[in-house]
Write a protein that binds this DNA or RNA. Sequence first.
DNA 1: GAATTACTTAGGCGTATGGCTAAGCATGAT
DNA 2: ATCATGCTTAGCCATACGCCTAAGTAATTC
Lengths: 128, 128
Amino acid sequence: MAKHDPHLDDLFTALGDPTRRAVLARLARGPASVSELAAPHAMALPSFMGHLQKLETAGLIETRKQGRTRICRLAPDALAPALDWLSKQRALWSGRLDRFDNYVTRLNDARSQKEPPHGHPDRPRPAD
Amino acid sequence: MAKHDPHLDDLFTALGDPTRRAVLARLARGPASVSELAAPHAMALPSFMGHLQKLETAGLIETRKQGRTRICRLAPDALAPALDWLSKQRALWSGRLDRFDNYVTRLNDARSQKEPPHGHPDRPRPAD
DNA sequence: GAATTACTTAGGCGTATGGCTAAGCATGAT
DNA sequence: ATCATGCTTAGCCATACGCCTAAGTAATTC
């Protein structure tokens, strides 16, 4: 079940920045050098390198030095964990949403009308 | 294509925190009150509320007040944009990766063995 | 109506993030 | 050898983040 995966932290955080997503999108069209990647981004190179650093730390890109230029490319399956978490989560959501929505709506309605002394009944514990 | 979508920033950033992901996971089993959600998280309530706030800002959860308790539940299709971006991206990656990987590997190999005086040949400029 | 409960608001604190400039290497070209 | 290029390191700054305590407000309970 993955208690809390620190890798996912890095992954999602890395994706949470437009510059970094743009770099990934650009990189999807093929490897590129640092300065090439930095060109469209209107920021000083060291700042930009910071972004690359995070992408690499998150395992989203791989870089290697070739002469004095550093070539960056995408890491093959780096998106898999994120995609995996998201799709699992969505599967749960869609499965449960309507059921519980109905349940709670009904519950609230009952409470605001009747004020049962019991407080809240045991939550349904959806089969686990 | 989405030049840079600020919504995605919020979405991914919200997902980049273990507490917030845990809340979502928990919430996938059904709606819950703030204090119920906060219970397993060993932090002061205001701190925890900050996380809920971000989840709501990101559009991942919806909350409404019922008496003095606030009920939180998942927002139906909130994950879709993130999932969408990721899967599109992955589609691009897998399409290009091997092609360019081969190209670059071959290129580097040639250079480190022969050191051609030409410098780097024109990169392939993938169609665009 | 007074106490309890469940949030909420206000404000503070330390660290991380995202940006900058200015030097500092290496490598490649002349 | 010299110079230009391409990245790297070092250091600074402002803001945002994640956490806290303390005090406030609104709804239930007694």
